[in-house]
Nucleic acid binder design. Structure first.
Lengths: 243, 243
DNA sequence: ATAAGTATACTTGTATACAAGTATTATAAA
DNA sequence: TTTATAATACTTGTATACAAGTATACTTAT
């Protein structure tokens, strides 16, 4: 598989990935961004030709995307579902659900090690902002929440997170790229929210946690149209931006 | 793929299924039941030989089971994780989490059609008991909860259910088979619990719902050792039982 | 012109072939 | 006996081949 210049998904995150994983990540982001529109019928053969790959990794990708509700596999072809605003809200329902659950567990735990780790991540986020690295910032943002979820050691909550994560990551990625272009001033506030989250964990303060979580949602909750604009912009400027 | 006589998974549920789905369902149940022990290393080639199938459907099965936390894919071989008692409890954490969420939504909805549907399912459960059909009873039990979850139309809650369902189904299946052999007297109570659940939905009574849900968990919450016993019993008696 | 039937070009699901890499085992040397 | 090296038998990931089935389009007959 040739590494296309016009890949939306960060190439450096895919260095060790198999072809199947690469295709999965790229297709996912194209669907989330709206570059591949809802209603489109995807065929394994056409995708294989487009990516210059055999059908094996394509099949793997389609199965994964179907489990993430981004496409629906049918007799002939996979129909793209994409993300409506309603579904983005639903994703945040689930995030609120599991992070609230996790927080309840944290209330009964030692959290010094966790907050240490989270502080480190926030430092990394600041560096990413300084160097205007949207992808790195997104990575740390996702890692922040994953670190919290992992810390309670609940394998089925983690399973839910693992199913949700790829789509979340895509949304955050597109949202942050847009912000770096258009709303750079947002970032200090986003960082502050994360610091608030850490404070809530340290103080074991339910209310503070839910509040900072809600604020965090608002930060990412760009409407789908915004993400689409963002994607358009990126595709147009991709010749210059990508090495 | 030959239809082995010693399949644990109900053959009639797999009539329209592809080879990949058949292998997935059978492997899953063997892992849950303990027939394939935790720590076992599964190789694609060996499984393909064992099931008289090519590696394609086996790969599909292993990917699915990995997403369900039943195995862990590694460089060489897939290591079986199975279900510990802790994990079974975690599954019920998640069920409680999503069914409670769903119930909150139901409080704001018209539920006459839903309760009608649920009553029908309970009738079916009674018939299954009458004819001592453990598999059919399990099917209706799973369908009962799925019907409730689907009724609120939340695609990401449904996604969680879809990820959880196969393992749930397996647990219920093994648990009910054991009960039909050893604790037949349990069933009237199980049916009553489901009727209580319906009443809770009709009355929009949170407390009643949580209570009946908890009771329902207790009914299925056979310890892993019990499931293993059940499986042993079934494998020994399989020549007579399966057609 | 329209309807029916056939041919063709798709589709997915499974089997097989191949390539690259890893663990193990056997062999050889110290 | 122990260590190092080489050969072999595995492993997964990807490509390709094949089979069965479905939709489309074309051809033929009325």
């Amino acid at each position: 598989m040739t590494e296309f210049k016009d890949f939306l998904y960060p190439q450096k995150w895919l260095i060790k990935a198999s072809t199947g994983e690469k295709v999965t990540s790229e297709l996912r982001l194209r669907i989330i961004s709206g570059l591949i529109e809802s209603g489109t019928i995807l065929s394994e053969n056409k995708l294989a030709a487009e990516f210059s790959v055999s059908r094996s990794p394509i099949r793997e990708a389609l199965k994964t995307l179907a489990s993430e509700n981004l496409i629906r596999l049918e007799r002939m072809g996979a129909v793209v579902l994409g993300l409506t605003d309603k579904e983005i809200e639903e994703i945040y329902d689930v995030r609120l659900l599991i992070e609230t659950f996790v927080f309840e567990r944290l209330l009964k735990m030692e959290t010094t090690e966790l907050t240490m780790e989270l502080s480190k991540i926030v430092e990394m986020m600041k560096i990413a902002i300084k160097y205007q690295d949207a992808d790195e910032f997104s990575y740390q943002d996702v890692l922040f929440h994953e670190t919290i979820i992992r810390s309670v050691g609940h394998s089925y909550i983690l399973m839910i997170w693992n199913n949700l994560k790829p789509v979340m990551e895509g949304l955050i990625l597109l949202s942050m790229r847009m912000r770096f272009q258009e709303k750079y001033e947002d970032f200090p506030r986003i960082v502050k929210n994360h610091e608030l989250y850490i404070a809530a964990i340290q103080a074991k303060d339910r209310k503070l946690m839910v509040q900072s979580l809600h604020d965090n949602f608002d930060d990412v909750q760009g409407k789908v149209e915004d993400l689409w604009r963002s994607q358009q912009m990126l595709v147009k400027g991709v010749e210059q931006q990508n090495d």
